[in-house]
Design a protein around this nucleic acid. Structure first.
Lengths: 186, 186
DNA sequence: ATTATTTTTTGACCTAGATCAAAAAGCATT
DNA sequence: AATGCTTTTTGATCTAGGTCAAAAAATAAT
């Protein structure tokens, strides 16, 4: 909880009442590895803050799992499209490791914003940050070779290879597992 | 200005003072075709609402122009990464057609949010919408063949081919102009 | 209308990475 | 330590779309 409050308060002013409310509204959730947090075609009605562990967003293409992103310690995670629009999700979310999460429901999220303009401000900054990042990332990504993507991935997620399977990395890079294996063997 | 106020008020409550303030802070700007609105490596300190015309976001890769997006009537446009982070932009913005824009500076945007919580709410919703869209779009896009991308583009921008050059479309699709030409000839 | 310039199309060849199939390496479990 | 079961690697081939160069078409300028 300390990390979550820290995260919020570096982005907006947190007075004692808001602190109290965050404490109350974000529920601590200890989740075993492999647990599915959101299934395909359901509406994401939870926003997660990762205190400890690793979250895996992925979707299916031609029946195969494609990684969209990993979220680890001190990051907010959800299926953004589904959470913000409250439409059914094209992606699923699972815990890849035993994790400690702080969870808020969509309804409480909305209520928190309505009750605390300062938290509304935080929510805006979070969306702006995510958008900035995705804007930057999606454009740089599209022009990298498989090898360059692999190198960049290692910068973003330093020890990801010890934490997830090769195929999950490969699909994130947009290449086949075989190609990734060949890249690595050099 | 009517369209802009319409756009805002379908997303948040606009009282007379806010209406007045929006009127005052968004400046009408009639821009000739070809005008560069933002250059590479400068900070985007303007947010545009397109009343009339067509805006082109693009960046350079290997010295060649790559289209990142088109913005037309009734859309907000800027270089999102640069505007929100106030860091230098990897993309440029230009008007492809003679356009009528309503423009607000970054400073006024911030001030507007500080003075009107309701506008802050609007700004949050705008960022959430853009993020939702980009999240959805970037993931669907990556698995389409050149031909499928071309078809999808035509749904998004019905008469874009009459408005921009082939090369600008091709780079948006992530394919060479030659390939696009071949797709079209069938 | 003719010429110059820009944009689009066509042709010939090439390459990064895909696919399919099988071997090897890692692990658990008994 | 032997037996499965999963994950990764290696090998052989294939293909969508790239590149380079030149022709054709469209647009603009005289």
């Amino acid at each position: 909880m300390q990390n979550l409050l820290q995260y919020i308060s570096t982005r907006c002013f947190v007075n004692p009442e808001l602190r109290q409310r965050v404490h109350h509204d974000f529920e601590k959730n200890e989740v075993p590895a492999g647990k599915i947090l959101l299934e395909y075609n359901r509406v994401a009605n939870k926003l997660y803050f990762v205190e400890q562990g690793l979250i895996h967003n992925y979707y299916y293409h031609d029946g195969k799992e494609v990684t969209s992103w990993f979220y680890s310690e001190n990051q907010f995670a959800t299926a953004w499209y589904s959470f913000y629009t409250q439409k059914s999700s094209f992606e699923e979310i699972r815990c890849l490791e035993e994790s400690v999460l702080y969870v808020i429901s969509y309804d409480k999220y909305q209520k928190l914003i309505a009750d605390f303009p300062s938290y509304g401000n935080f929510a805006r900054l979070l969306a702006e940050e995510m958008l900035s990042f995705l804007d930057y990332f999606s454009k740089s990504w599209s022009f990298l070779s498989a090898k360059e993507k692999y190198n960049l991935l290692q910068e973003y997620f330093p020890n990801i290879e010890q934490r997830v399977k090769l195929g999950q990395i490969a699909s994130f890079l947009g290449i086949s597992q075989e190609t990734l294996s060949r890249i690595r063997s050099k």
